[in-house]
Design a protein around this nucleic acid. Sequence first.
DNA 1: CTATTTCCCTATCGGATTAGTAGGCTAATA
DNA 2: TATTAGCCTACTAATCCGATAGGGAAATAG
Lengths: 136, 136
Amino acid sequence: MLSKKTKYGLKAIVYIARQECNTPVQIATIAESESISLKYLESILLTLRKSGFLGSKRGKGGGYYLLKNAKDIKVSSLMRILEGPIAMVPCVSLNFYEKCDDCPDENACAVHNLMLEVRDSTLHIFNNKSLADLIS
Amino acid sequence: MLSKKTKYGLKAIVYIARQECNTPVQIATIAESESISLKYLESILLTLRKSGFLGSKRGKGGGYYLLKNAKDIKVSSLMRILEGPIAMVPCVSLNFYEKCDDCPDENACAVHNLMLEVRDSTLHIFNNKSLADLIS
DNA sequence: CTATTTCCCTATCGGATTAGTAGGCTAATA
DNA sequence: TATTAGCCTACTAATCCGATAGGGAAATAG
């Protein structure tokens, strides 16, 4: 299940990406428009900024803006920052790999192989979609 | 993230499906072989029985056995019983649909459309895979 | 008939995570 | 100097998950 953090984060960055001329958008504007708790959204945008997706400007007329072209932001990288692993099981994760305690042989594990297939197909979607694709 | 319940449940039913002549398998046997807490596994197998996948036999020589041919048990139906919705977001779920509180227009929601695509590809895998496919 | 085996069922619990809140701080601008 | 708007840390309520406890009931063996 997708966390609200991810859902809110995606909606917010899509909102920001829709601005013309990359004008900074205030947190409060997004929060109101997307019905997201302001303080919670604040922390989400903070992590998106610390991850290098967004820049920020303080004081009057401030807000958040994209640091890169929307075409160059892959959905998969957004998902990894917001949600964490894309795989449903750590033992098939590329970026968050972890061995199972049980399961002596991964290749013989039915769950492993099934989830490997799911991860591939999901990743294929996320890797081939950019923020720009989400806007329209 | 896949819950342990699902992981254990899948491993267990795969174990049961591997038996020759559909001989009943005891909970304890599976628990030991797959390193699963016995009591926890007990409750998982109970739900699989109540959902019509497994039959049970009590007393000596008892245990769990498949009620249908492994070919006729789709992974998607197992997933729905064990894990719940296959979709990452309720608003794109076929069997567990729920409208978002926020989001006035689903078709205009970037997250909705993205997750719709993911659900389709995941479901495609789960629908076209049976328990028999997991065994080998 | 009795003992043993094995599944049946309900209740409970600790720990982790999530979503959200509070509140003060700091930089930029007017 | 006042105001605006993001920065940052800490805290909390609620929920869920994985696991545990413990007795009950049916089937079988002897």
